[in-house]
Simulated assay, not measured.
Amino acid sequence: VDGEAKVGWPTPSKKLELYSKTMADWGWPEYAAPAFIRSHIHWEDLDLAAGERVLVPTFRIPTLIHTRSANAKWLNEISHHHPLWIHPEDCEKLGIETNGLVRINTGIGHFVIHAWRTEGIRPGVVAASHHMGRWRLGDDKGRSWGAGKAEIDRDAEGRWHLSRGEQQPYESADPDTGRIWWRDTGVHQNLTFPVQPDPISGMHCWLQKVRVEAAHPGDNYGDVMVDTDKSHQLYKEWLAMTRPGPGPENLRRPLWFARPVKPLATAYVYESGGTTG
């Protein structure tokens, strides 16, 4: 421009591309230009009368960082409980009491969590922050400020059940572990989420279509149930939405896509020259 070299945008054309030749070349021509894509949680596909809602399991509170802050004692003292955010209108429709136990049914199982009635979330959507729910099986291993004792069993139908115990003070090189006063470490919701790889990018689709209901008799806070057969079945359904590779020049993915730690270009090439689903 005026005799001065410019780098441009990080795209093949160095321009801000409204039409993506990459999308067309890689088998998705209908999305080469911006378009609406109906998601797996589209509101018109929800049966609200049957208790179906959208679960947001990825929202964050300001005191924790994913589950990596489980070793920060002061932060865990501040935040060690993550109730389900649910609008009062949904509570009335579904018969859920304030701080009552709620069973969240996913495509492959369920988890049990406390409810928090709040107008801070819109009707039709529920949410549980993703920082908590760490668990351990041993009495003397894996202990931390945010990991509660758990037991895992398998029933006659092959489904896995995880039940939680309370956090307890314990002896360690840090005398503050003996001063732990809180008993809750949250609910491990991630186990109940099926594998949902976006057909184009492969990234996991975290939002969940769930069925929300009051807890059943015998349900306890922190209970988790997972059916791995259903998990594999749903994975195959998502896999069927993909389109076979390789792409142009026998590549696994476009070379120009930015990555935090980018491998050598040779890692992107199919050595056999075959196709994959």
Score class of each variant (00 low, 15 high):
residue 89 E to H: 09
residue 14 K to V: 01
residue 124 G to L: 05
residue 110 H to T: 02
residue 71 N to Y: 08
residue 9 W to A: 13
residue 89 E to A: 15
residue 113 I to G: 05
residue 40 H to C: 10
residue 239 L to F: 13
residue 69 S to V: 04
residue 194 P to Q: 07
residue 245 G to S: 08
residue 200 I to P: 07
residue 27 G to K: 01
residue 66 H to F: 12
residue 46 L to Y: 10
residue 70 A to L: 10
residue 66 H to Y: 12
residue 10 P to Q: 06
residue 16 L to F: 14
residue 250 N to T: 01
residue 220 N to T: 06
residue 118 T to H: 11
residue 247 G to Q: 09
residue 42 H to G: 06
residue 4 E to C: 12
residue 48 L to N: 08
residue 248 P to G: 05
residue 204 H to G: 13
residue 177 T to A: 03
residue 54 V to F: 01
residue 238 W to N: 07
residue 133 G to C: 08
residue 121 I to K: 05
residue 67 T to S: 14
residue 42 H to Y: 09
residue 252 R to T: 06
residue 205 C to I: 14
residue 54 V to T: 13
residue 24 A to M: 02
residue 254 P to H: 07
residue 45 D to A: 15
residue 9 W to T: 01
residue 187 V to E: 03
residue 94 L to K: 09
residue 259 R to F: 08
residue 212 V to F: 09
residue 12 P to L: 04
residue 201 S to M: 06
residue 241 M to R: 15
residue 276 T to E: 13
residue 178 G to R: 10
residue 19 Y to V: 12
residue 57 P to H: 10
residue 267 A to P: 00
residue 70 A to P: 00
residue 36 F to R: 01
residue 265 A to R: 12
residue 181 W to F: 04
residue 226 V to D: 05
residue 135 W to I: 07
residue 247 G to N: 11
residue 104 I to T: 14
residue 179 R to I: 00
residue 94 L to W: 08
residue 144 S to P: 04
residue 52 E to Y: 08
residue 105 N to A: 00
residue 191 L to R: 07
residue 159 R to W: 04
residue 166 E to R: 05
residue 211 R to T: 14
residue 85 W to S: 09
residue 256 W to M: 04
residue 191 L to G: 09
residue 93 K to A: 14
residue 225 M to F: 02
residue 81 H to V: 11
